[in-house]
Amino acid sequence: MGVITVKDLRKDFIAAKRKGFLKREYLKIEAVRGISFEVEEGEILAFIGPNGAGKSTTIKMLTGILNPTSGYARVLGLDPQRDRKKLTYKIGTVFGQKSQLWFHLPPKDTFELLGSIYGMEDKELKKRVDYLCEILEIKDLLDIPVRKMSLGQRIKCEIAASILHKPKVIFLDEPTIGLDVVAKKNLRSLIKRINQEENTTIFLTSHDIGDIEKLCKRMIIINLGQIIMDDNMKRLKYNYDNKKIISLRYAEDIDFNLEDVKILSKTNNAVKLEVDMEDRDIDDILLKLFKLGKVEDISISSRPLEDIIAEIYSIRGEV
């Protein structure tokens, strides 16, 4: 049995719509429509989907914040709603756009408070803070008021606050939102390290494909409240990566005229193409491209994962 088990989980919201001055019409919004999945211990799972797909609602049901309309959910064998208090000792959450740090105080104070809230002994807390300072590289930030920190520094401290009590499962809801490239890269390696060193299960939602590519082996795609794909990354790429991007630069201007390829961009002597490998052979295409003129430079790459996911959203979104 996995650390997270979800069976036919549903969440409906009732929204009031004004109809005239006093009349109101009530609409049922199906945010999550009967999803089922399992997450194994130590796994890093990407739980992705477009805006309004039901990602955050699912996280909030799994962390006991929202009551599901129906269905079954267990996290570490506990019912998130019934055993919410018990569960809070075993899980950690990071909501990228929210903060749990006290704004005017240094993070050290929040850590001390959280230590008391989670019933940690002073010695145990100190040891844990020292460990997190080392892996998250936040030792120099401990005494700086949160309001004076950069976003990247703050997120690191948010993560430390969320895993202070050694949770077995961490829910990361868009942890890298708003971070610059370097901060994102650092944060990803830190998440990986926490996962490896403590065998922590990580449930990640993100709109940043880089997060998913660098961190996760498995991906669940949700759209309109339903799971449209649950697969590992390798298989996903294998199944959907049937298009290649070929960029060429010729020695002189060419008159480009080739059938069955999609031109993505073109100048006088350079062209970028997308080739569907399902009905074409790469050597056949290359042969034709070389015949067009003297090639000075060539590169062949896979489609970015971002494009593959966008395609999955659009093809399978209307289930």
Partner: peptide, 9 residues
């Protein structure tokens, strides 16, 4: 923000 505040013991 309540999401952060109610999922604590």
């Amino acid at each position: 923000d309540i999401a952060y505040k109610i999922n604590k013991p």
